[in-house]
Simulated scan of single mutants.
Amino acid sequence: MPQLEQEDLKNRLVAQALKEGFVAARICRPWDVPDVPARLRSFLDAGYHGQMSWMEERANWRGDPAALWPEARSVIMLAESYTPDENPMEVVGLQDRAAISVYARGKDYHDLVKKRLKRLARWLISEAGEATQVKVFVDTAPVPEKALGQAAGLGWQGKHTNLVSRDWGNWAFLGSIFTTLDLPDDRAEPDRCGSCRACLTACPTEAFPAPYQLDGRRCISYLTIEHKGPIPLELRSKLGNRIYGCDDCLAACPWNKFAVEASDLRYAARAGTVAPPLAELAQLDDATFRETYSGSPIKRIGRDRFVRNVLYAIGNSRTPALRSVAQGLCSDPDPAVADAARWAVQRLT
Rank of each mutant, 00 (worst) to 15 (best):
F208L: 08
F208M: 09
A210W: 05
A210F: 08
A210T: 03
A210V: 01
P211Q: 03
P211M: 04
P211F: 02
L214G: 05
L214P: 06
G216L: 10
G216N: 14
G216Q: 11
R218A: 14
R218L: 15
I220P: 12
Y222V: 03
Y222G: 00
L223F: 10
I225E: 02
I225H: 05
E226A: 08
E226Y: 07
E226K: 04
E226H: 04
H227Y: 04
K228E: 08
G229H: 06
G229R: 10
P230E: 12
P230H: 14
P230K: 13
P230S: 08
I231S: 09
I231T: 14
L233E: 15
E234Y: 10
E234H: 13
L235I: 04
R236Q: 10
S237A: 13
K238G: 09
N241V: 09
R242S: 00
R242L: 02
R242H: 12
I243G: 04
G245V: 03
G245M: 02
G245E: 00
C246H: 02
C246Y: 10
D247V: 01
D247M: 03
D248S: 12
C249Y: 04
L250G: 04
A251W: 00
A252P: 03
A252C: 04
C253N: 08
C253K: 05
P254I: 09
P254Q: 00
F258M: 13
A259I: 05
A259H: 04
A262F: 14
S263C: 07
D264K: 06
L265T: 11
L265P: 03
R266Y: 02
R266S: 01
Y267K: 05
A268E: 05
A268M: 06
A268I: 05
A269I: 09
A271V: 00
G272L: 04
G272H: 02
V274D: 15
P276H: 14
P277M: 15
L278T: 06
L278W: 12
E280L: 15
L281N: 14
L281A: 15
L281P: 13
A282C: 13
A282S: 13
Q283F: 15
L284S: 12
D285L: 09
D285W: 06
D285H: 02
A287K: 05
F289H: 09
F289Q: 14
F289V: 15
E291H: 14
T292G: 09
T292V: 15
Y293T: 08
S294N: 13
S296N: 06
P297T: 00
I298W: 02
K299A: 08
R300G: 03
R300L: 00
R300N: 00
